[in-house]
């Protein structure tokens, strides 16, 4: 009766590999929720973080928003949104985005603020435009930390997207939720394993993205 036994049973059962409740379907659903949520959160958090970090203004407002967003409980927010909007993707996306924006926002801001000011001064003295300074001087140096914020957000989204199943949507949370109601531990453990594996793949992807995009001159600290 150990966990590994359940994992083996879950993945060994060929019924779990086909149809609308098959692993490929659920995995794709889960990926879809996660990517949309991460995309929206990045579209909100990155520009705001980069801009406030570059100008150095609005840091307090940003910290306040992040603290407030963090205080909102994802599960409660999901139920609330479900009651307000009914069945659909939106009630799931709102808690996921609220969950992911604070780490992206705060980390991006801090990363930009921690860039050594003297190259920025030198760049300005050489006549670089502010946009160039942001994208060619500050961002390359801040990139590892910015990616770290995105990575934290992505792992949290992947893990939390399981709650979508509570409001009758799909994704890997289906296995966990159904398993809970059917007292089918095999399903619960199988679902959890898939989520953890997806989270690890996410980490690996971010690691690879870092290797590809971060200059060796910045990466040295490793």
């Amino acid at each position: 009766m150990n966990v590994l036994h359940f994992v083996g049973a879950f993945f060994g059962d060929s019924a779990h590999w086909h149809g609308y409740d098959g692993i490929p379907t659920r995995l794709l659903e889960h990926l879809r929720y996660s990517l949309i949520a991460l995309g929206v959160a990045a579209a909100v958090g990155l520009p705001a973080g980069l801009l406030t970090g570059h100008t150095g203004r609005g840091g307090n407002v940003l910290a306040f928003i992040a603290t407030a967003a963090r205080a909102l409980p994802s599960f409660g927010l999901l139920v609330l949104m479900f009651i307000l909007f009914g069945f659909g993707l939106v009630p799931v996306m709102i808690p996921l985005v609220v969950l992911a924006v604070p780490p992206i926002l705060v980390t991006t801001y801090e990363a930009m603020r921690s860039v050594d000011p003297s190259p920025v001064d030198a760049a300005r003295g050489m006549g670089m435009s502010e946009a160039r300074i942001l994208f060619q001087v500050e961002l390359p140096v801040a990139l590892p930390v910015v990616l770290g914020g995105l990575r934290t957000a992505a792992v949290q989204i992947v893990s939390t997207a399981t709650i979508a199943a509570y409001v009758s949507l799909g994704g890997l949370g289906r296995y966990i939720m159904d398993g809970l109601y059917q007292h089918d531990y095999e399903k619960v453990v199988g679902g959890a394993t898939l989520v953890a594996a997806l989270a690890l793949v996410t980490l690996a992807l971010f690691w690879a993205a870092g290797r590809l995009t971060v200059s060796p001159g910045v990466r040295r600290r490793g």
């Binding site: 190259p119 390359p140 140096v141």
Partner: peptide, 12 residues
């Protein structure tokens, strides 16, 4: 323009 700690771009 030359400044105190050179202000080099560490990523280049």
């Amino acid at each position: 323009y030359v400044i105190q700690n050179a202000g080099l771009f560490q990523h280049r």
